[in-house]
Design a protein around this nucleic acid. Structure first.
Lengths: 247, 247
DNA sequence: GCTACTATGTTGGATAGCGCACATAGCGTA
DNA sequence: TACGCTATGTGCGCTATCCAACATAGTAGC
């Protein structure tokens, strides 16, 4: 049985002042986020937002012909549903659970009320949104210029940063959907990484064995996003905990 | 020589309440934005923001090896420098004038002060930012799945929407940099469009002759972004002070 | 242990876009 | 008018990726 998530596991919730968190607390509902669960569909008016703790949610753009591309990924550093506080109420993308786990659900009205106080949460969410923008921008550039091999590395690193262990439950087919490439392309890229001893995989499970090497094989895109996210969110998590000490 | 821009030419400035605009007005400096002018470089701390009136600014991501990709484009519907009010002060992208014209420059401190009042400008800028996010997300997906031919159509349409006439001053080389493809690829795509009577070009000038056909040849990406931008910004230009009061 | 299903491996041919090299042509300037 | 620079046109071989079809191998359920 999954245990109840705690606020400290989500960076945004952790960074809130006690006062602000106390206001939200009665309305934060611990929620299971099973693999493949669609939190919202393209164009849906969002009613809730989600704060993942140990789960990962993909923001996926699905085109008319069914082909898809992952726009960005949200884990315990963020929130799913930014359109609620940005004012649009919906976006043309799908939010789907990429790695099962848990999180907190919060009714949009409560979030908006707290956001409208223009206190700590307001500040936090805008900075987080900028980090998300950086990730999207980098994804656009990466899609244009880098190979499947490199992009798989980037994707693995982004996922690993949001998980507690070094193993991921995910088929190559699903990874292909995220990257917007063919499944065979992922098979081939994964094969190379396994041959190099960087990862080990079998039937829907991928384990990272040599992270430094994975970073070396990756394009610059991962590092740029990581560095910028750290910069933007570091100022957030000043006090309680020191974030990963990015060299 | 060029005449002074007026506030009404920028959608965001136009949508402000008279009161808010009166506060900003003394500090809005009419500015020439010549082709190729770099408003800010990747990582620069931004001191000013810009409200284009008849110019177009590209947000361009430049990679380590020099290859580039346009992330989004800003014209008279928007503002350049969102990182200032989002809280990050800088972004890893370059803002460069893609089509010469004019705009208003505003010191960041003034913008931040007005933003911090949490009035109309605050509301406007967040909605605009969401529209920008949509454009970036769509760009990422388009880069993944669509042909150069289609992307050139998208790019032309996005540019045309931000210009008063149907002619653009821009070499194929520059377009190639924006799209992140080879110049020859653009030459070929432009050639096809000209043969089809959709555009006419010569040495750095492109004229759109048949816009409906251009839209037909384009991938869905243009329409999605246009529709979503209209949705998000329409509510802006409705009435002077229509609150969102969403229940 | 058998079966059905799903995940992964592999192949062969097609194509879009790349990199390079070079040809042509508009246009400003001397 | 001639020169030179810049913009565009074109060809050619190369590679990554796509598309489609099929082979193999874990795994769950019986």
């Amino acid at each position: 049985m999954t245990q109840t998530p705690v606020y400290e596991d989500n960076l945004l919730l952790r960074a809130l002042t006690d006062e602000a968190r106390a206001r939200l607390e009665p309305n934060l509902k611990p929620t299971d986020l099973p693999l493949g669960n669609v939190l919202y569909e393209s164009g849906d008016v969002m009613n809730d937002v989600y704060f993942p703790t140990d789960s990962i949610v993909s923001l996926l753009y699905v085109m008319e012909d069914g082909r898809s591309a992952e726009i960005s990924v949200v884990g315990n550093e963020g929130i799913v549903g930014i359109a609620l506080f940005m004012g649009g109420q919906s976006t043309p993308s799908r939010a789907i659970v990429q790695s099962a786990g848990q999180g907190f659900r919060l009714k949009g009205s409560y979030l908006k009320a707290e956001f409208a106080r223009h206190g700590e949460l307001h500040h936090l969410l805008l900075r987080y949104t900028q980090a998300l923008i950086t990730q999207m921008a980098q994804t656009a550039a990466c899609n244009r210029h880098h190979s499947i091999d490199q992009q798989l590395c980037r994707w693995l690193l982004l996922s690993m940063d949001r998980l507690k262990d070094n193993e991921l439950t995910m088929t190559q087919e699903l990874i292909a959907n995220m990257l917007g490439v063919r499944r065979e392309g992922v098979t081939e890229a994964a094969h190379k990484l396994q041959a190099a001893g960087v990862i080990e995989y079998k039937r829907g499970h991928i384990k990272v064995l040599n992270r430094p090497e994975l970073e070396r094989l990756c394009c610059e895109c991962y590092a740029v996003v990581k560095k910028e996210s750290d910069r933007l969110l570091e100022q957030i998590s000043n006090s309680p905990f020191k974030k990963m000490s990015s060299g």
